[in-house]
Simulated scan of single mutants.
Amino acid sequence: MQAEYFVGIDAGSYQCRVRLTDRQGNELANSCVKTTPLALDSSAAITAALTAVEQAFTHAGLSLDAQCQASAAFGFAGCHIGRIRQQAQAWPMPFMQHRVVSDLEVACLGAHTGQCGGVLIVGTGSQGTAFDGQQFHSLGGWGFALADQGSGAQLGRTALRLALSCHQGLTTHTPLTQALMAQFEQDAERMQLWASTATPSQWASFSPLIFDYAARQDNLALQLIDQLAADIDDLLAFLINRSQQGKVSLLGGIANPITPYLSPNSRRRLRKPLGDVLQGALLLARRD
């Protein structure tokens, strides 16, 4: 029996978006609700996603009973972790059929219209996935303490360590490290107190300053950015290889400023996304 409706769900950490289409691909309705990370409260996250789906059916003037004629694809943040994916997959669903993958995987399908390719997000953290035409190959997503190579958070932490080293006389100061220490009134104890509770996004907040000083040819800033670029080159090489030499979409807050520093080979393989996350989820919902 063929589905009459197709539902794409982008269930991020704090917002869940839904798009509903008919068999011909006509967009019938969209909806959006607040949510919570699946890893923190799977029940709340899945309930929010199903509520958003119900809203889309209601907006389209359809009975909720019509959900049993639908094929749905969920892209949940955090679903690259097996135990979290299993929790979502085991949840009772009202659809004819459904699939549960990570939000990054549906983003990858959308970015390359279902063809081979990869997606790498470099912002506060870093995470990527590659699609080889049959399966996904995930990379990263293990958090600040264990991973996040090529991220703003890691860049900020490395820079502050370097600034502290200069402050102690182990390395010669540059304008960048002086500017970083000025953030803490030239006080190592103040820096240590801040670092003891700093979140990844707070570490990443120093990234624009570092890029600014790299543009001014600050020697230490350029070293930091060159290392960041090398880390991202490594991540891109993995995704290019696993996607059968496909293109990769580089996304996130670090993507634009770091691109000029990447290797020529990496830059040749980059491509702007051809579609969005919901388009990717709908492509997955239509797969047999």
Rank of each mutant, 00 (worst) to 15 (best):
residue 169 G to C: 09
residue 56 A to S: 08
residue 188 A to F: 08
residue 23 R to N: 06
residue 183 Q to G: 14
residue 68 C to S: 15
residue 89 Q to M: 14
residue 89 Q to H: 11
residue 263 S to C: 04
residue 167 H to W: 11
residue 276 D to G: 00
residue 265 N to W: 11
residue 148 D to L: 08
residue 91 W to P: 01
residue 24 Q to T: 09
residue 279 Q to L: 06
residue 234 D to E: 11
residue 189 E to S: 13
residue 130 A to N: 02
residue 46 I to T: 07
residue 11 A to D: 04
residue 34 K to S: 15
residue 160 L to W: 10
residue 48 A to D: 12
residue 176 L to P: 01
residue 32 C to V: 12
residue 176 L to N: 06
residue 56 A to Y: 08
residue 122 V to W: 10
residue 195 A to W: 13
residue 159 A to Q: 12
residue 210 I to G: 02
residue 237 A to E: 08
residue 254 I to C: 02
residue 139 L to E: 03
residue 250 L to G: 01
residue 55 Q to T: 09
residue 218 D to C: 03
residue 156 G to I: 06
residue 204 A to I: 03
residue 164 L to Y: 08
residue 40 L to M: 11
residue 198 A to L: 07
residue 77 A to P: 05
residue 171 T to M: 10
residue 250 L to W: 13
residue 126 S to Y: 06
residue 169 G to L: 11
residue 158 T to G: 07
residue 276 D to I: 01
residue 107 A to Q: 13
residue 85 R to L: 06
residue 69 Q to K: 15
residue 56 A to Q: 09
residue 166 C to L: 05
residue 169 G to M: 09
residue 38 L to M: 07
residue 240 I to M: 14
residue 155 L to C: 05
residue 68 C to W: 07
residue 107 A to W: 08
residue 104 L to C: 02
residue 116 C to R: 15
residue 163 A to D: 04
residue 6 F to M: 00
residue 64 L to S: 06
residue 244 Q to A: 13
residue 208 P to L: 07
residue 283 L to H: 14
residue 277 V to C: 08
residue 62 L to G: 00
residue 112 H to E: 02
residue 241 N to I: 01
residue 206 F to I: 00
residue 33 V to S: 10
residue 275 G to Y: 07
residue 36 T to H: 13
residue 178 Q to C: 06
residue 90 A to E: 07
residue 230 A to W: 09
residue 115 Q to E: 13
residue 125 G to P: 02
residue 259 T to F: 07
residue 26 N to P: 02
residue 151 S to M: 05
residue 218 D to F: 10
residue 32 C to Y: 09
residue 175 P to L: 06
residue 97 Q to K: 15
residue 130 A to L: 02
residue 46 I to M: 10
residue 248 V to M: 06
residue 47 T to S: 15
residue 92 P to R: 12
residue 255 A to V: 04
residue 238 F to D: 00
residue 109 L to T: 01
residue 132 D to Q: 07
residue 210 I to A: 05
residue 164 L to N: 08
residue 224 L to E: 09
residue 272 K to A: 15
residue 51 T to D: 11
residue 260 P to T: 14
residue 155 L to T: 04
residue 225 I to R: 14
residue 270 L to K: 15
residue 269 R to H: 15
residue 79 C to N: 14
residue 65 D to L: 06
residue 58 T to S: 13
residue 101 V to D: 08
residue 270 L to Y: 13
residue 285 A to H: 11
residue 119 V to C: 09
residue 90 A to K: 11
residue 286 R to V: 00
residue 262 L to P: 01
residue 120 L to D: 05
residue 39 A to W: 09
residue 266 S to P: 02
residue 124 T to L: 06
residue 52 A to H: 10
residue 260 P to Q: 12
residue 22 D to F: 11
residue 20 L to Y: 10
residue 145 A to F: 09
residue 284 L to T: 03
residue 19 R to V: 01
residue 161 R to I: 01
residue 189 E to F: 13
residue 73 A to Q: 10
residue 260 P to A: 09
residue 260 P to F: 08
residue 108 C to H: 11
residue 177 T to A: 03
residue 103 D to L: 09
residue 227 Q to C: 04
